[in-house]
């Protein structure tokens, strides 16, 4: 097999990003939408890791970025779940199309 270059990682991250994007647009259930948003973040993280590995050199600034994004992503998810909780208590449904008046 050929050597794994930077472009392999970039393709993987791109595909994961697209999967996450399509899922966030297509899905009816709001939990799935939140999961797909996390996929987007994961894809971006892989992108950063690949660049840090192949182009970073001595300084691994990309890896430090990943740390921040992971933290932010988790907190964002928590806040989203919080909001979803209250919407659910009002609407009694987890269908995104019913949340139009937000």
């Amino acid at each position: 097999m050929a050597e794994i270059t930077l472009y392999h990682y970039l393709v993987i991250s791109l595909l994961l990003f697209i999967i996450g994007l399509v899922g966030s647009i297509m899905c009816k259930n709001i939990i799935k939408v939140l999961i797909c948003i996390e996929f987007i973040l994961a894809g971006v993280n892989i992108n950063f890791a690949a660049f840090a590995n192949y182009c970073g050199g001595a300084e691994g600034d990309g890896f430090v970025m990943i740390l921040f994004y992971t933290g932010i992503g988790a907190v964002e998810l928590a806040v989203a779940i919080y909001i979803f909780y209250f919407m659910y208590s009002k609407k009694q449904t987890d269908n995104v199309y019913q949340y139009g008046d937000l």
Binding site: L21, S24, I25, M26, V33, V96, Y97, Y99, G100, D101, L102
Partner: peptide, 12 residues
Amino acid sequence: TGNIQRYNLYAF
């Protein structure tokens, strides 16, 4: 449309 996901798509 009022559909948030559609707006998301436009933004993207």
